[in-house]
């Protein structure tokens, strides 16, 4: 998590203020973590107990009465979960790696090189970012099918690169880096590639890491596209597998349109 290590220590504080601030930060952290902690603790309960002690509020609303690892055991026993995890890992890593490479190059050009159509290209990036994925789902599927990629890693990885978000984010950062650096490099005989490689990338390490991380997490959480573009269980990713756990007949979680 240690993505930035900035030295911008803004304000030296008086004792009381510092304590109040620390308390506030901690309280916020609890708010952010509590729902997830509750979920995690619920996962340690036997199935019958999960929703048993919700009302009225007591210690057992939060803490499992009979802690057990049954849920995890079921998960691992009933499903080739390792395979799903591996698929998710492969897809998310590949997309993250390809995306950061492709996006940073494009972002560099968009931020630093003047060429005809640059604004139009940026507009295109924004457009792709805006259009809801649901609108593209069917045509995207048709393209991937035409390429013969259904049920392959290619289907899960290639169409996801680049992410318009990454290009946009990196462009904003590259624009913020002082121009003098480029000029100095050019005087030293660097060309665009050299500037990109030796100056932009090293200076943007934190943001490149952020982009990689965000793409990874986005892909790790992606659901609709993997569901639609793969049929074979060998290609299944974790989110699709997990989605079917809470559903189906006899499950109280979702109301099917039919429940027969």
């Amino acid at each position: 998590m240690n993505l930035t290590s900035s030295g911008t220590n803004i304000r030296p504080r008086s004792g009381l203020l510092a304590h109040v601030a620390a308390g506030g930060k901690l309280a916020l952290a609890i708010i952010f973590v509590f729902p997830l902690a509750w979920m995690f603790l619920s996962s340690l309960r036997p199935v019958a107990e999960i929703f048993q002690y919700i009302f009225p509020f007591s210690l057992w609303t939060v803490v499992p009465l009979h802690a057990t690892l049954d849920s995890y055991r079921h998960l691992l026993r009933d499903e080739p979960f390792g395979r799903y995890l591996a698929n998710s890992l492969i897809v998310a890593s590949c997309v993250a790696a390809f995306d950061v490479a492709v996006s940073s190059m494009a972002a560099y050009a968009l931020a630093r090189i003047r060429f005809a159509g640059r604004e139009a290209l940026f507009f295109l990036v924004l457009t792709v970012m805006i259009i809801p994925f649901e609108a593209l789902l069917v045509p995207l599927y048709l393209i991937v099918r035409w390429l013969g990629w259904v049920d392959s890693y290619a289907a899960l990885i290639v169409p996801m690169v680049p992410r318009a978000f990454s290009i946009f984010l990196l462009r904003q950062f590259f624009r913020g880096l002082p121009r003098e650096l480029d000029d100095a490099a050019r005087i030293d005989g660097c060309r665009d590639w050299g500037i990109y490689w030796h100056i932009m990338l090293p200076l943007s390490r934190p943001v490149l890491l952020s982009v990689t991380l965000l793409t990874f997490q986005e892909m790790w959480g992606s659901f609709t596209w993997p569901l639609v573009s793969t049929n074979n269980a060998n290609m299944r990713v974790v989110q699709v597998a997990v989605a079917s756990f809470g559903q189906g007949d006899g499950s109280p979680r979702r109301s099917p349109s039919c429940c027969s």
Binding site: L124, V125, V128, L136, L140, V158, P159, M160, P162, A164
Partner: peptide, 10 residues
Amino acid sequence: GLLAFGIIPL
């Protein structure tokens, strides 16, 4: 990438 998997579907 943007053309093939963004603009063409669009």
